[in-house]
């Protein structure tokens, strides 16, 4: 138990991923310690989602190894479903089950995967819906909720499985600006509660305030990583500098000459 507490939750070594001829990840090494919150930032198409999806095998690695919660998931004989049931994932597009109510969304995997009895699954689902501020919307259908509410249900759905690691792929990118805050508040509370999190995001304020470590990825490699104050506040690499300049000051996207 003590050994597991210190062993990394995620241990990625020499990860390569190609789609056909196109190499998207070109040798990534990354470890995430228990309770750590790691934000992954980088330009569009740099491979952030691909990296995140390799952590629960929604993409299979082309080369290298990925160890999650002590299990080598790049092993072809791995029981990936067992690992995934302990790793929550939140998608950019929410992906709530359209044919189920909010409550059923949060109970279906508990019942079918963890084999929890109905009452227990519903109790845990409700607890988590309360946690994201939607305890009263259990009977609603996903299409009756706003994007921000749907995303919070998606977080509750993942949390109901008692995950030991949460993956977020741009959870607020599809939301109207005024709905972003509610989702980020839920994520911040989760981080403060000690959840191990890997978050792909364009929300620099969130990364700066909440992350223990920020990883900047570009062209399929990690260009720079470190404490948020260093990577976001005082980036060393020119590519990081250019990216942050564009993100933090989008109206002066090409302002390098005016400096």
């Amino acid at each position: 138990m003590t050994a597991q507490a210190t062993a990394p939750v995620v241990d990625i070594r020499g990860l390569h991923k190609s789609f056909g001829q196109r190499e998207v990840l070109k040798g990534v090494d990354l470890t995430i310690a228990p309770g750590e919150v790691v934000c992954v930032i980088g330009p569009s198409g740099s491979g952030k989602s691909t990296l995140l999806r390799c952590v629960n095998q929604l993409e299979t690695a082309s080369a290298g190894s990925v160890e999650v919660l002590g299990t080598e998931i790049t092993d072809p004989d791995v029981d990936i479903d067992a690992v995934r049931s302990r790793v929550g994932m939140v998608f950019q597009g929410f992906n709530l089950f359209a044919h189920l109510t909010v409550l059923e969304n949060c109970t279906v995997a508990q019942r079918k995967v963890l084999r929890r009895p109905k009452e227990e699954a519903e109790r845990i689902a409700l607890e988590n819906l309360e946690r994201v501020g939607l305890g009263d919307r259990g009977d609603a259908h996903p299409h009756q909720l706003s994007g921000g509410q749907q995303q919070r249900v998606a977080i509750a759905r993942a949390l109901a499985m008692d995950p030991q690691l949460m993956l977020f792929d741009e959870p607020t990118s599809a939301l109207d600006p005024e709905l972003v805050g509610d989702v980020l508040a839920v994520m911040r509370a989760l981080a403060e509660g000690g959840m191990t999190m890997m978050v792909v995001t364009h929300e620099m304020a969130f990364a700066r305030d909440v992350a223990d470590r920020v990883v900047f990825i570009d062209g399929g490699v990690i260009v720079e990583e470190g404490a948020p104050a260093d990577v976001i506040g005082n980036p060393q690499h020119p590519r990081t500098q250019l990216f942050l300049q564009r993100v933090l000051d989008p109206t002066h996207a090409h302002g390098t000459t005016t400096d």
Binding site: L58, R84, F91, N95, A109
Partner: peptide
């Protein structure tokens, strides 16, 4: 929808 289900361990 399929990815969400798989990511929950189904």
């Amino acid at each position: 929808q399929i990815e969400a289900a798989r990511s929950l361990g189904m």
